[in-house]
Nucleic acid binder design. Structure first.
Length: 486
RNA sequence: GGCGCGUUCGUCUAGCUGGCUUAGGACGCCGCCCUCUCAAGGCGGAGAUCAUGGGUUCGAAUCCCGUACGCGCUACCA
């Protein structure tokens, strides 16, 4: 074991999208694998036919890959212990379930749902500590079993849990965990439709796929004793277990759709950078023990360890994600941002051909520190892409005086004398004009900003003028004078 | 109900082998500086009797026990 290559798996059921909690689980598996020169495996747990969702696997894989979580083995990256879709391994589960029956650790059950329901109700009425199957079919005679089997009536295969056993295992994150077998039900292993339940499939696959570390969500902790039992019954070596704390809603319930976005694709659509999402999710339940919060994937790989994963659930705090997104955005080079911005423009109503790279680069320099998302280049500085069609009312009320139009006109003529003006040229011309008007700089700069941008906030005034260029600036000032005067 | 897991500022967390903690950092919030505005940046502030009660100890957020609360599981779902 010690010298074996660590092998871990992310084993989602294909529900249609990658949940951010799933992303966190996948990420920790991935980081652990990369950190320890191991293998990261994707296995699809599609044994519930009622939950089949068309295209779910493709979507899952796409989200995983977008986040940079490349798996070494999986549905479309075959290794030699596949297939990696449980629905294609039915014969394997069947074979192993039968082995269990032969060894007496499992048995056929022909009970109808009606009998099971009645049993449960009866047990509840009696206020029994826990509702459990009564092992009725365990005591069927060989003949009865043969007859029922031959008749083709519905059957399942159940785990034969022996009472009064202590089931103990060591969890990497939680330490020693102990269960009493009296609290464990004779779990169905093979359903009446022939598909295995999670419990059987996951143990058989983890063993056959040589998984060394089972890293999964805390919701599995309670069923781990069933899995331990199965390993023992098969006489297989057990993997290490690490149960991750849950991701929570702001009200501390398990992170759910009702209280916001949970799908990775939602965050992608909202303009979050994959670097930020990964960084943020990594920190939800883990830290290196220092104050570092800004990480790239390679740094996470270098620092990650299961031993430093927390035990308690973590609230998914959007504010902090937003901050990290801004941080990651600002750390990118202007050229990297340029590519993203061009994509954004392409997906907007704007015509990309109107904005040469050189122009966009100026916009990026001016706005980079003022945005948290790429799409904010467009929403926070629309005037750098199109002339303003309206002007902020509050700013008009505050800075637009009766004499303002004349003063702006004066600026226009000052600017018109400039030859291909730089930022400094604009500034000098502005100061000269202001001096001649005998007014303070501040008195005119705000109306000018309003006239040129339609807004009261943004980059330095002269940066804006420089980006827009002389002709456009003059045109906009004249436009504003007319519009606001009217 | 039963079983299991958890509980440090609003949130993410440091603190893991008890003293260096008057409990540190980050997000958010507030204020100041910078400044043509908004950001970014710098500085500062408010904010946690470490869920609670009881032990052990010269000394506990750190070890032990109880209680409360929260969450998970309790399916022929994963």
């Amino acid at each position: 074991m010690i010298n074996e290559t660590p092998r871990v798996r992310f084993a989602p059921s294909p529900t249609g999208y990658l949940h951010v909690g799933g992303l966190r689980t996948a990420l920790y598996n991935f980081l652990f694998a990369r950190r320890n020169n191991g293998r990261f495996i994707l296995r699809i747990e599609d044994t519930d036919r009622k939950r089949f969702v068309e295209g779910a696997v493709e979507n899952l894989v796409a989200s995983l890959k977008w986040c940079g979580l490349e798996f070494d083995e999986g549905p479309d990256a075959a290794g030699d212990v596949g297939p990696y879709m449980q629905s294609r391994r039915l014969d394997i589960y069947d074979y192993h379930a039968k082995q269990l029956i032969e060894s007496g650790h499992a048995y056929y059950c022909f009970c109808t749902p009606e009998r099971l329901n009645a049993l449960r109700e009866e047990q509840q009425k009696q206020k029994l500590p826990q509702a459990k199957y009564d092992k009725h079919c365990l005591h069927l005679s060989k003949d009865e079993i043969e007859k029922s089997l031959a008749s083709g009536i519905d059957k399942v295969i159940r785990l034969n849990v022996e009472p009064n056993q202590k089931i103990i295992f060591e969890d990497i994150i939680r330490g020693r965990v102990e269960f009493d077998s009296n609290n464990i039900d004779d779990q169905v292993l093979i359903k009446s439709d022939g598909y295995p339940t999670y419990h059987l499939a996951n143990v058989v696959d983890d063993h056959l796929m040589k998984i060394t570390h089972v890293i999964r969500g805390e919701e599995w902790l309670s069923s781990t004793p069933k899995h331990i039992l199965l390993y023992d019954f098969f006489n297989w070596e057990k993997p290490e277990f690490a149960h991750l704390p849950l991701l929570l809603n702001p009200d501390r319930s398990k992170l759910s759709k009702r209280q916001g976005d949970v799908a990775v694709e939602d965050y992608r659509a909202k303009g979050y950078l994959k670097e930020a999402l990964v960084n943020f999710v990594a920190l939800l339940g883990w830290n290196a023990g220092d104050d570092k919060e800004f990480y790239y994937m390679n740094e996470l790989i270098e620092k990650f360890s299961l031993e430093r994963v927390n035990k308690s659930g973590a609230v998914f705090d959007l504010e902090k994600l937003n901050w990290l997104n801004a941080e990651h955005l600002r750390k990118k080079t202007d050229n990297e941002i340029l590519q993203l911005l061009k994509e954004e423009i392409n997906h907007s109503a704007l015509d990309i051909s109107q904005y040469p790279d050189e122009y966009l680069l100026k916009v990026i320099t001016a706005m980079k520190e003022r945005v948290s998302f790429i799409h904010e280049f467009l929403s926070k500085s629309p005037y750098l892409f199109e002339a303003p069609k309206e002007y902020e009312q509050a700013a008009i009320a505050k800075g637009w005086k009766p004499e303002t139009p004349e003063e702006l006109k004066k600026l226009c003529s000052a600017f018109s004398n400039l030859e291909n003006p730089s930022k400094e040229d604009f500034e000098q011309a502005f100061e000269k004009a202001v001096g001649e008007l005998n007014i303070s700089k501040g008195k005119l700069i705000h109306p000018l900003r309003l006239a040129v941008s339609g807004m009261s906030t943004g980059p330095g005034m002269f940066d804006i003028l420089f980006i827009l260029g002389k002709e456009e600036v003059i045109k906009r000032i004249n436009n504003a004078v007319e519009t606001i005067r009217a």
